[in-house]
């Protein structure tokens, strides 16, 4: 089930530095929402608040509300482990575990209690098929995941997230470390995945946001400047700063 996320008056601090200022945003199910903006604009910080990855960093504070399918996820009593099962994340650099391809996919499910071998086998096949990797690796599932190419590794990381059966998939610049062909394959994949998931993708690559996303949000200096349908953001943005950024006349 794809989730609906509502962000209300979100502020975020690293120590004394305020990285996000009063963000209000709705993230729709079965759509790709792209977050764009220059380096240090807060888009990565923002995406990491959605599965509370920032909790891992000492000295961070967050105010405001993030509501996932009607439930506030920033409260202390929320089980972060449970949240991260529902909100998967794919990172900038492919980070497969130094284990076999098979072990990578079942890493999460196995530790969350699925022990049945045939169930795990099925999960591996299904997850790898979902990311169009099955045919490439089905004969060498027990080989090290690090022997795969960068693009394959990233697809494996997506498969690893999908094996947890999440509702939301967060992607933090998932193609910035990949070559153009691998990038294209990931883009295709993301577009297919949106049929089932809510997808939020941070990208440095404006063209990528334009190509694949339905909704685009433009961040600048920790503020959400503008968000709306991608085709409108890229043909007739409302804010001059958005226009400057997407036309490359920035700074």
């Amino acid at each position: 089930m794809a989730s609906y996320i509502k962000v209300e008056n979100l502020d975020f601090f690293y120590g004394d530095f305020q990285a996000l200022h009063n963000i209000n945003l709705e993230i729709e199910p079965k759509k790709i929402t792209a977050l764009i903006g220059p380096s240090g604009c807060g888009k990565s910080t923002f995406i990491r608040t959605l599965n509370r990855m920032n909790d891992l960093i000492d000295g961070t504070r967050v105010h405001g509300k993030i509501i996932l399918d009607g439930k506030s996820i920033l409260k202390n009593e929320i089980d972060v482990v449970e949240l991260r099962k529902r909100v998967g994340m794919v990172f900038q650099k492919p980070n497969p575990f130094p284990k076999s391809i098979y072990e990578n996919v079942i890493y999460g499910p196995k530790r969350h209690g699925i022990r049945n071998k045939s169930q795990l086998d099925q999960l591996v096949e299904q997850s790898l098929k979902n990311v169009a990797l099955w045919d490439e690796v089905k004969d060498r599932l027990n080989e090290s995941a690090l022997a795969l190419s960068g693009g394959q590794q990233q697809r494996l990381c997506i498969a690893r997230s999908l094996a947890m059966k999440p509702d939301v998939l967060l992607m933090d610049e998932p193609t910035s470390a990949l070559d153009p062909i691998s990038t294209l394959r990931i883009e295709e994949l993301v577009q297919q995945l949106k049929e089932q998931y809510t997808i939020v993708i941070v990208t440095h690559n404006m063209q990528q946001a334009a190509r694949i996303s339905d909704i685009t949000a433009f961040f600048l200096n920790g503020e959400l400047i503008e968000y709306g349908q991608t085709e409108y953001i890229f043909t007739k943005p409302c804010d001059q700063r958005t226009e400057d950024y997407i036309t490359g006349r920035f700074g």
Binding site: M53, V81, G88, M89, N95, G108, C157
Partner: peptide, 8 residues
């Protein structure tokens, strides 16, 4: 991070 993101 990859492990934490899987709810570990």
């Amino acid at each position: 991070e990859g492990s934490y993101a899987l709810g570990m």
